[in-house]
Amino acid sequence: MVNSYAPENLSEALRLLQAGKVTPYAGGTDIMVHPRAAASYLFLRQLPELGQISATEQFYVIGSTVTYQDLLTQTKVDLPDVLLQACRKVAAPPIRNLGTLGGNICNASPAGDTLPVLYALDASVRLARFEPASVNVKDTDGSISYRLLPLRQFIQGVRRTCRQPDELLTEILIPKVRYTLTEYEKIAARKAQAISKVSFCGAAAAEAGQLTRLALAFGSVGVTVVRDSQIETAILNGDYDIAAAVKAYDQLLRPITDQRSTAGYRRTVCLNLVRNFLTAVLAQTRSGAQVTDQ
């Protein structure tokens, strides 16, 4: 007989994780597609530490077990609209009530709906582990240690992250940056309940007729979400016009053909999305307009 656990706080959860082979279970919507009867689960949804949404001076801080529906209905924090747009495109209400932002990240599917947004907005993840007390310290039974790393570094491949077996993803941090134009697109067979053929997030900021920030992220066209800072910098510096930028992404992207779409379709859609977004960005920059998008 295998035991599963519903810990009451983070410290307890981390100790259970360190003690043995338990599988962290947040929303369950990916795990339960292929359930394993003999699995020992660590149920995380009740942990108060992981369910919070807050903001500091620099960051939006989203607990890893916050659901898509929580993000869409909470009114406490003025979250980036482009993230909420992505949440609205996830599956349908029954799944949005279960699925979590931390789960979308740790599942590390290249088609994760929120991932292009989190990549474009330079999100980081905070990981916690339990540090047992050294033998010399008698009064304490240990403490929690944290590490923070960029999401782009955390996700390493298809369903592969650098989370260690004794670590939990506790929070997602999104820098508070003012963008003047953001866009999220999900291209799929139908609006609801579909896995994307291509997803895209663009974020740009312009100031006094000058493009100051640019991020372009593509989902479902590689083993991870694709972002290329060299191309972004070349566009920012004015080294690439739109045609040159599109050509650079044409050379960068290596989509594949699978059951959902073909390589050719994915490539064409991505390049159209880049062209359209950059056209809008440059038009806005030239006109010096300061349309606030978030």
Partner: peptide
């Protein structure tokens, strides 16, 4: 059994969820 069809929907604490994607322990 993969959350696609909604035929297994139930309410948990008043919220609509697909019961096929929920481990009873949770």
């Amino acid at each position: 059994k993969e959350g696609e069809c909604g035929a297994c929907s139930v309410l948990i604490n008043g919220r609509l969820v697909t019961s096929c994607l929920i481990a009873v322990g949770s």
